[in-house]
């Protein structure tokens, strides 16, 4: 299926605030359109003996939904976020410690997993944990006409044929994690990855801007 080449794909407006909670070592809230996720990081901290790894830090991710108790869906999202974090954090610098990342869904209006990834990355930066690369999350949806929509809202997600989320790293723009739902062709997959890589540039630029704004008074 061909994709309309002339369509302008856009990202919703996004915003971020760091260090908004006093207890966690690092915290950030990331807003994409109406979707917002709050992330808090504790670490490196003491780890239970049953969970300790002798040469690396143990990463734990907890996602709390807004209503009700966490269910299997949250567990699978936690797995995705955890694998992305483990790929980009320098875990061997903190053996026998734990890094706990807690994500709280404040409002879900589509692209939840990518918003969680973005807020997780900003929180890890705020906590000052050493990372080999930054990561960002981009969600693409393919609707029934074959059009690619990035950063879909909940209504757009519902009316789509396939939904994919990619975690892209900042150094070489490669895919760290992908989570897909629905049916699509190989060609469409590659197109979505290419679009996500393009979109990730904007997000990384945003990270850079917010960090330079934050430390502008110090430097």
């Amino acid at each position: 299926m061909e994709v309309c080449r002339s369509s302008a794909v856009s990202l919703r407006e996004f915003g971020c605030e760091q260090s908004l909670l006093s207890r966690p070592d690092g915290s950030a809230s990331f807003v994409q359109g109406d979707t917002s996720v709050l992330a808090g990081v504790y670490g490196p901290a003491e780890v239970k003996v049953s969970k300790e790894i002798y040469d690396r830090a143990t990463v734990e991710v907890l996602i709390q939904p807004k209503v009700g108790l966490p269910s299997v869906r949250e567990r699978s999202q936690e797995q995705c976020v955890r694998e992305t974090c483990e790929a980009s954090l320098l875990l061997s610098l903190h053996p026998r410690s734990s890094l706990t990342l807690v994500l709280q869904v404040l409002h879900d209006d589509g692209s939840l997993l990518s918003c969680s990834l973005n807020s997780a990355c900003m929180a890890l930066m705020d906590a000052g944990l050493p990372m080999s690369c930054l990561f960002c999350g981009v969600t693409c949806a393919i609707d029934y006409d074959g059009k690619i929509i990035t950063d879909p809202s909940a209504a757009q997600e519902k009316g789509s044929r396939a939904l994919m989320t990619f975690a892209i790293d900042s150094t070489e723009r490669r895919v760290l994690m992908s989570s897909t739902k629905g049916s699509f062709s190989v060609h469409e997959l590659q197109q979505c990855i290419a679009v996500s890589q393009k979109a990730s540039e904007k997000i990384f630029q945003f990270y850079r801007d917010s960090i330079s704004r934050r430390y502008s008074k110090n430097l």
């Binding site: 990202l11 605030e17 990035t150 801007d209």
Partner: peptide, 19 residues
């Protein structure tokens, strides 16, 4: 510590060829 950015568009002109 806060920053906001408006809606931005993403260029996808050469996406199809790349794919």
């Amino acid at each position: 510590t806060a920053l906001k950015k408006d809606e931005t568009s993403v260029e996808m002109s050469d996406v199809s060829e790349k794919a």
